[in-house]
């Protein structure tokens, strides 16, 4: 089936098998390996990307379902070599250790601030329920989202 979609501002037109998962399209067809495949059962959130402005798990969606969609992955956040404020906040607050969950964490964190520019700590933790980190214990990730929210308010 022929599909058209936009990833990080670039258009793709491609013939795909209906069973090709979106994450495989991103990684294997588009070559965007920043989006990680973790559990493959829609629990860990490492594969989170933005689809038409909403955070979704790309391991639990077929590429054909995204026909016509506008997708943003972790590679699409930095502009002209400058990190996105959320990436900057994760860096400054040490919101990662091994980095495997980080692309998904950052995409989910951005979703939190789209909907609520000044979330409470509870709201941040609730917003990250779909993402699992096995290193940091989450505190630095929560701090990073708080810092990004504070920075965006300035």
């Amino acid at each position: 089936m022929n599909i058209n979609l936009t990833i990080n501002g670039k258009s793709y037109s491609q013939d795909v098998e209906p069973r090709l998962l979106l994450i495989h399209f991103l990684r294997d067809v588009a070559g965007l390996t920043g989006t990680h495949m973790g559990c493959e059962t829609s629990l860990c959130g490492a594969c989170t990307v933005e689809l038409n402005g909403k955070a979704i798990k790309s391991c639990s969606m077929f590429t054909v379902q995204a026909n016509g969609a506008d997708i943003v992955t972790i590679e699409g956040l930095a502009t002209n070599g400058r990190l996105d404020p959320m990436q900057e906040a994760f860096w400054n607050e040490h919101g990662l250790q091994c980095g495997f969950c980080t692309p998904g964490m950052i995409m989910a964190s951005k979703q939190i601030l789209y909907r609520n520019p000044s979330p409470t700590e509870d709201e941040i933790r609730h917003g990250l329920e779909g993402n699992v980190c096995r290193c940091t214990g989450y505190q630095h990730i929560v701090n990073a989202v708080k810092a990004a929210a504070a920075g965006a308010g300035k």
Binding site: G45, T48, K57, G130
Partner: peptide, 9 residues
């Protein structure tokens, strides 16, 4: 229900 990503889809 579930988490943010699941509720979006």
């Amino acid at each position: 229900i579930g988490d943010v990503q699941v509720r979006n889809m």
